[in-house]
Structures are given as structure tokens and as C-alpha cells.
Design a protein around this nucleic acid. Sequence first.
DNA 1: GCAAGGACGTA
DNA 2: GTACGTCCTTGCA
Length: 973
Amino acid sequence: MHLLLVDGSGYIFRAFHALPPLSRKSDGLPVGCVQGFCNMLFKLTQDMDADEAPTHMAVIFDAKGKTFRDDLYPDYKAQRPPAPEELVPQFPLTRSATRAFSIPSIEMEGWEADDIMATYACMAKEAGWKVTIASSDKDLMQLVEPDGSIRLLDTIPRPGQPPLRWIGPDEVFTKFGVTPDKVIDVQALCGDSVDNVPGVPGIGVKTAAELINTYGNLETLLERAGEIKQNARREKLIANADLARISKKLVTLEQKVPVEIDLDGLIRQPMAPSALFPFLKAMEFATITKRLATLLEANPDDFEADPELKAGGETPVPGAPQKSSSLSVAKAKLAANVVPGSGPARFAAEEHARIKAIPVNYDDYEIVTTQERLAAWVAKIQDVGLVAIDTETTGLDPQTADLVGICLSTKIGEGCYIPVGHALAGDLLSGGGLVEGQLPIRDVLDALKPLIESAAILKIGQNVKYDMEIFWRYGISMAPIDDTMLISYALDGPRYNGMDVLADHWLSHKTITFSELAGTGKAQKTFDQLEIPAAARYAAEDADITLRLWHVLKPRLAAENATTLYETLERPLAPVLARMEARGITVDRQILARLSGDFAQRAAAFEAEAYELAGENFNLGSPKQLGDILFGKMGLEGGTKTKTGAWSTGADVLEDLAAKGIPLARTIVDWRQLTKLKGTYTDALPTYMNQRTGRVHTSYSQASVLTGRLSSNDPNLQNIPVRTSDGRKIRTAFVAAPGKTLISADYSQIELRVLAHIADIQALKDAFEEGLDIHAMTASEMFNVPVEGMPSEVRRRAKAINFGIIYGISAFGLANQLGIARGEAGDYIKTYFERFPGIRDYMDAQKVKVKADGFVTTIFGRKIQFPNANSGNPSERSFVERASINAPIQGSAADIIRRAMIRMEPELKKAGVDADMLLQVHDELIFEVPEGTEGAAIPVIKRVMENAAEPAVRLTVPIQVDAHAAKNWDEAH
DNA sequence: GCAAGGACGTA
DNA sequence: GTACGTCCTTGCA
């Protein structure tokens, strides 16, 4: 891995003096630095590609406003004159240029670009990467590493010198007379007149280097200053020791900036003509446009100049002066870049309108059946550098379905289908033959494999995890990818899941449905049984529509500030989940079979008993029949109705009846438990065992939960019983493979900790800091009883209240949960709010926010939308209030474990630990490791999970993970 | 054959 | 009181 950081702000200032001035022809806007900047980006990527191509890249800018250095030393950078007028409009333009080149542009309020670069360099170094910083700023020289793993690259053009000049340890020594690690000590002494760092008056670089080399470091020097022979020098040092110390703080770069995008988010993206040329055209940079057109094999004439940026662009800005110089108009317009409805948002809206207007024409799709046409498609994909791709298979389970065809699209309106597995009709015995005219599957995969695995070609899909797993079974690793389903999820949540819904909503296009093609129910055909021409229309449409959706949705990420979420929390997780699904977990069939028998017998006994008690036979599984018997025939009191008017026979109702001495109620409860365990688990799980792997492979849905959690299905392995002893027996059937051991690692009280952090509740934070029993502590605070010897009932109530808080408490709900009166529950809540007043503030803030904005957010910026926050229906409204209180808590915890999962595999690898992540259950991760290595694996797993929030968010509560190893899940948990 | 409702397993 | 997925029955086609 190789990270390239570009010092954007540093470049602009230096280029301004080094480059000849240049004005845009049509309106005289000064753009010299912008052009130099574009040339530099182009040159950097070209020259470095030839050598050691950076795999990750970002341009870092200074943000406006104060930094910690201003507090440290109010005169810091005080003498700096205001930026020249010609430079001002070029600041935002260089940011636009960065985005046009598809490079992340990063700036953070309160931090200088240097600190952000130091942080990333430090992160990359820790990860064992190479780092190049494109800057010649001497303040960055302290980051240079003696082994060359971090180097600077001077990119300012200078006559008679090569365009790019490396700055390594030798160059640093030439400049400062010391090794890079001592640069800050030298700077502390000699100061810096440009930044107004004081240093020790009268000491320059030479003297400073001499002193530091003699005494080793600044502190030692200051301590032993009295030993210095030269009078003047000695007195100056003693008198100004504090100034030197402050200076050191000023020049020392912060390496722990809480950056929002982690390293993975900086992965290099291919340049997109649709982003690049509108910008370059608006700037009227002819030469570089031509060079990039050649490089990308794109036609700039296909693109219009960005209307926001082009000379005399239309968009009037509210409040902007009507008549003004072109310069101030440009300034005003650029400021409007951040206003919704302009800049990126406008671009996204225009793209949407443009794409939506292109009709779908099924006749334009191609069926590829010859090597020549296959080769032509391969060439086309290589040219364009991106491809929408979709696999058609014999089923929905990526671990068993076989490939039937592949569809591709590189340009909207075009698409092809490559059939490889359509089967001849016929009975089962004569099956196995393929329809003639299809290319051999091996030939097709051999031709496509280099593309699918090429780092230079972006694969775009809808629910790519599925295709990834299919291709993996054919020996192909799909990367890099973009997923329209995940982009949509990052933007809009699970609202428009599914390509048919996305196409309908964004493109107003109704796609061919699979049922239309293959029928429904038992008679539904599998894809291999379809006629190729019909299959091709459906399949090629999928690829074409996916590409259209990508063009519509991707620009919205930047426009709606969801890029970080998508790049750090969604896109990198998909391959991790794909691998977990592919691994599966071993389930002991015999244990389940024995349990099924046991449960069946005991259920039958309860069934007979129920008939006896009811005085008649009826279907115990029918709530309707049961309700009629209990509240009709037996005439019991206290029955409640469900919303459809049926008798309610839930477990809580039956428990109440049982307590009143109705034995039938207890019998039903027991029967239900056993049949539930049998039907949903012990009978069902064996049917999910994969013939090929002998394991059970769940499927995770990454994009269907409102709060950002995952969900698991087919089978759902996130609701395997644990609360009852019969239920836990099912967990003993989840076992480690021979020679392996399972590890279960779970977050302790993660949601309460997240609540303590978000709502800033000092009492809760202190309790977690001290490692107290949080429910007992709550009980002690609320009921004024000591934790020592606390009755379990008291603790139980406090626990229920804590959970209630997380769920957006109501007196009604708490009363139900605890079986107490509404009034009493209301008193509890009141007491709680009095003891922890911050909680009420948090809750009120969420309610206000959801009504005003229609969404709330997690600490990582995930938006959770509530479209009916202002519903006219009061119960719906209070439902949204409770959900808006819960969502940031549940969602932030979900984001934390997602981050842990994304980092887990590389960190295990780095630590030399062989461990396979198998399952996720919201706050728990299950691993499989070779027997005897659990001692090595557990500390790494705990470290990654406990530090998962950083560096994006520094939590103000400790995070605790408990991990255990055992042969089965029950014992490991 | 399918959708809705009820019930219940998990965090 | 939050967030899910699955099984079963029921009622309508």
C-alpha cells in the first residue's frame, strides 16, 4: 500500500509566487494556481504510476478558523498578511479541481492541513504502508522517516530542475543539520518568522542544530544550559527556555487528529470523465483537457462546462450584488457551492434528469455467443474502465446457485448477456445437457477474470456481495466494486431496497420482473430453464439499469455528505460479509436430531394435557381457536383484543392467566416454547446444511435495517435461543470444525455506553470508568439503597428502566414490562430524569431534531430518516419520537461493530493470527481458530473491537469486550 | 398460491 | 417502549 497526501494549501501559496499569473480568457478570473494544481495532480499520478503507484490518495487543505495553536500562542501566524486578492477565488476552485479528479478533498475545522497529513501519515506507517507527502513545507520534514517509508515530494515547478524532487533524510539534514526526528527541537530554538513562531531570539538554524546535536534534544539542552561556555548564548537560552518550549509545541504536528475518513476511504478512484471534463471546460484549460482526453480515451465534447463554474454562469446567488466584477461574482458563486441546491447537489440533480430521460430499448441489447464478440466486450470494458455487471444463476443462495449467464454494460442504453449455463429441456434423467450456441463457461470466465480482478476497472453491481460469492466459487475475486444498493442505503436507508424499486423510483422505469419471466410458485422455472432470448432481455436490462442507477446515485453521495459513510462503513464491509457467508459454521446434525425428538415427545405430552384441560381437541397452534376456548367457552375475564379484534393470547396474557390458576394457560406456554424451538431451529437448521461444505451459511443483509444494523436470514443466525435452558441446548449444536475452537467476543453494555457518550451523562461515564455493575448503580442512585446486599428485584427494575431509556421510554411500556401500575412507572421515570438530567435533554433534543429535519444521526454521520415525523396520527408521532431516541444509540453501536469487522481481518493478519470471522450477532462476533491459538487471537480481537470507534470518534466512555473460547457456541458465549 | 396477522426467537 | 426474521394459521383467490 502506498498513500499519497497532497498539501493543497501549501501548494496554492507556493505556486502563487512560483508560477506566472494566468487569467481565464473569457472573463479574466485568475486561475494560474488552479491550472498549476491540475497539472501537478496529473503529473503526480502519471509519474508515480510509472514508478510505485499510490494505492490511496487525498488532498488536504487548511480549514478556515482557529486552531489549537492560536490558543497556545495568540501571536501564532499573526504577522501573516491577508491572502492576495487574486488568490482568494482560487481556494475553492482547487477543492473543486480535487473532486473533479475523483480524489478525496479533506479539511477539518480546528486543524491545519499539516496536522491532518501527520495523522494520516502516522496511521499509514502503523499499517506498514509507504507514504509520500507532496509538499516542500519545512514544517512537514519532521515526518520524514530514516528508512524512507515517509518522504516528501516537492512539486513546485522550478526552472532548470526536474519537475518532481524527493525530500528524504539527506535533504532534511541539509536543511536543518539534524536527522528528521530532531527537526522539531531545532525549529523550537530557531523559530519561524513566517509563522511567527518565536524560538529563542538570536539563535538561527546553524546554532540550533549544533546545540541539539551536542545535547541530544531540547529538554536536555534547556536543563543543562548553564554548562554552555558562550555567555550570550547561555543567557539567551536560560532566559527564553519557556519560549522554546512553547515554540516546540507550536511546530510539533498533531498525529491524533480525529479524522472522519479512515485510510480505506482514501483508496484511489479511477478518474471519471463526467466529473473531470465539465470542470476543465469551465476553467478553459485546453492543454490538460486534451492530454486527459487522450489518456482516458474520452471525448470532451460529450460534456458541457460545469454551469456553476463557467464564465458568466447563470445561477444567481440570493443576496449577491447584481452588478459586480467577475471576481466577486466568482467568489459569491463558489461560496454557494456549499448551499443546498447548487454545486454538487445541482450536478446530482442534473445527472438525474439527464439519465432519467434516456429510454430503455430492449432491442439494443446483445447476446454474446462468439469469441469475437466476447473479445470486443472485453476491449470495450478495458477502454471505459468501468462496467456494470450482474450474474444470473440457478437460485438465490450464493453458496449453492450455479452460474447461468453474465450480463455487462459499459454505457447507458447498451448491455449484453453472455449465456453459459442454459440447460436443455427434458426430464430429470436426460438432464445435464446444455443448449447449443453458448460459449464454454471456462472460456468466458478466463476472458473476464482479468477484468473482474483488475484494480483499474470499477465493477458496479446491485447487491455485489452476491456476485462476489458466485465468482469466488469459480476462482475469481471481484474488486474494486461499487454497489448501487449500498449507495442507496447510505443515502436513503433501506427505503428503496431492490433494483426494481430503485428503477421505478429514480428512473420511473418498470423492469421486467422475474415472475413475469419465470412464473411463480411451484411452477417457477430456474434461470437455466429459460429461453435465452427472453433471459437476455431481462439480464441485460439489469446491467443497463444498474449503470443508470449508479450515475444517478453516486453524485448524490458528495452532494448529501454521505461519501464518508459509504466509503468507510458500507463499501468495505461487503467483501467482509461475503467471506463470512462463504465460510459458514459447522452445525452438529445429531445433536439437533436428538433435541427434535426430545422436544416432540414433550410437546406431545403438553398437547394431550391441553386437550384434557380444554375438554376438546383443537389446534394448539391457532391463536384464534385458543382465544375462543379461553375467553369464549371457559368465559375467562380480563381478555384483551388485538388491533384486528381477535382475542389476544400472547405469552404475557397466558402468564397472567396461569398466575390466576388457569393450568391450561401454562400448558400452552410450555407447548409453544417447545414447538417454537423445534419448528424454527432443531427441524429447520439441518435443512440449511450445504452439501458441498457441510456447513450452514447464513446470508447477511447489509442494507435492510433502518438503524444500520445487519440482519441475517436463510437461516437467521442472529436469533438462536439463549434465554432458556432448552433454548441454549440448540447453541451446543454450533460447533468448531475438527481441530478448531470457537471464540465468542461480545461488547459489554455497548448501547448504554454509547448513550452515556452521546447524552454526555457524567454519572454513567464514571460508573463505566470504575467498572461498576451499571444496573446496580442505577438502582442505588434511584432507590437510595446500597449496592451491597441489594435485593435482586430492585436491580431488575433498574435494569428494565435502563433498557427502557434506550428504547425511548414510556410509562405505559415500563408498566407493562415490570407488571406495575402506570403511575408507579411514571414515578420511576421521573426519578430517573432527576438523577440523570442529561438523559432528558438528549431525548428532547432528538424529538426536536426529528420533527425539524426528518432524521437523526449516529456519531459516525449515518442518517436515520423518519418521513412521518410530523404525522397527524398521535400514536404514530410518539412512535417516531421513541424510535428517534433509540436510533442514534442502536445505530452508533451498529456502526462501531461494523468498523471493527472491517478492520478485523487486516489486523489479525498483521498480528500473524489465523482466525476466521464467522458470525455477527449485533454486539457479538464469532470466530473459528486453530485449537490452541485462542490465547493469541483473543487479545487482538478485543483490541480491534474496543478501539473500533477511533480515530473517527474518540468515545468518552471505555468500551469493554468479553471473549471466551470453547468447542461450541453455548460454552463460548 | 399468496398476504396478513399473531406469536416469539435474538440484540 | 427499539430493531429484526421465521413459523404457523387464516382467509381469499
